[in-house]
Design a protein around this nucleic acid. Structure first.
Length: 315
DNA sequence: TGACAGGGGGTGT
DNA sequence: ACACCCCCTGTC
């Protein structure tokens, strides 16, 4: 294994996060909420959000530890706490879900105990889910990586070097390229649609380009949207090209901490049909069912159901 | 090993 | 209902 200690801070425990199984850490970071985490050969996870970079791993007792490039470590600590929602008691929140009267939810909650909802940067979450239409996670991650690499600003590690790989090497011995942040919406507005297409976006390139034009013409619109009440925020997001109810709910759930948002995708659709017997219901009807049945934290319930259904499919 | 379908975490018309 | 794009995956 390559020496990765050189420019990374020493590993330190992440206070406030209960012990986690490797599978659950993977599900949380790489289960469809976020698209910028990768598993490294040493079994740690490398992730990016905003201008932050961090690595996470589990110690022998399954407690989460973190490390960051030394130059930005002091900023990453608090950012990580926010990103992972450490200010929220997810175990307590999960306990308020109606699992006592819902056997399927109960088994999901038990088998995926410890699952949490990330709090990602709002604008990046919008970009990620604009890429998500009829795409699987691996493909979305590929698009996002290309967007970051080609159109995002290189990240300074805080130590003055701008082209460093921070000593991080892959199993094959080649250096990991310089880290880049995702392009901001202002930056995306200046990228020709053809170049977006070259990032494997397909028909999503037009949506992203048009959304970028709109956001560029309306400064502050996105920040305002993040602060609005759920329904108003959702309505505004849905007015963007390429954003429908599902994408809007994902953005609000994973990028704004709105646990009432209940995205209905094909997995949840399968779940509601197969496990709840809702054959023949329309998508709006299913969304309504979810909000009523699962209550004010329907989005949290959704993540348990979603993870369970994907897990079943992989068996 | 290399082609070749088939289908994909949705939105807009 | 169907087009929109085109990469991934499984299969032959």
């Amino acid at each position: 294994m390559a020496d990765v200690s050189a420019a990374w801070s020493r590993w330190q425990p992440l206070a406030g996060l209960p012990p986690l199984s490797p599978a659950l850490l993977a599900e949380t970071l790489d289960g469809g909420q976020a698209f910028r985490w990768q598993r490294l050969p040493d079994n740690s996870w490398l992730g990016h959000w905003g201008a932050h970079v961090a690595r996470l791993r589990l110690d022998t007792r399954e407690r989460v530890e973190w490390s960051a490039p030394v130059g930005i470590r002091d900023a990453v600590g608090p950012a990580l706490a926010r990103y992972l929602g450490l200010d929220r008691d997810f175990a307590g929140l999960t306990d308020t879900l109606p699992w006592r009267s819902d056997p399927h939810l109960a088994r999901c909650v038990v088998s995926l105990s410890g699952l949490r909802i990330l709090r990602q940067p709002f604008g990046e979450t919008l970009l990620g889910f604009l890429c998500s239409a009829t795409k699987q996670i691996v493909q979305i991650k590929q698009m996002i990586a290309l967007l970051a690499g080609r159109h995002g600003a290189p990240l300074n590690n805080g130590a003055g070097a701008d082209e460093t790989s921070w000593g991080l090497e892959t199993a094959k011995g080649s250096a990991v390229p310089t880290f880049h942040r995702l392009p901001t919406w202002a930056e995306l507005a200046r990228v020709p649609e053809t170049e977006l297409r070259a990032c494997l976006l397909g028909f999503r390139a037009r949506y992203i380009s048009q959304t970028a034009q709109y956001l560029a013409a309306h400064p502050g619109w996105l920040d305002e949207t993040e602060t609005l009440p759920y329904l108003e925020a959702k309505e505004r997001l849905c007015s963007l090209p390429g954003v429908g109810e599902k994408v809007a709910d994902c953005v609000l759930l994973f990028g704004a901490g709105r646990l009432e948002a209940f995205p209905v995708d094909v997995w949840i659709l399968k779940t509601l049909v197969r496990r709840y017997g809702l054959d023949g219901w329309s998508t709006p009807q299913l969304a309504q069912f979810g909000r009523v049945h699962f209550g004010p934290l329907a989005g949290l319930a959704q993540q348990f159901l979603f993870a369970w259904e994907r897990q079943e499919a992989r068996k």
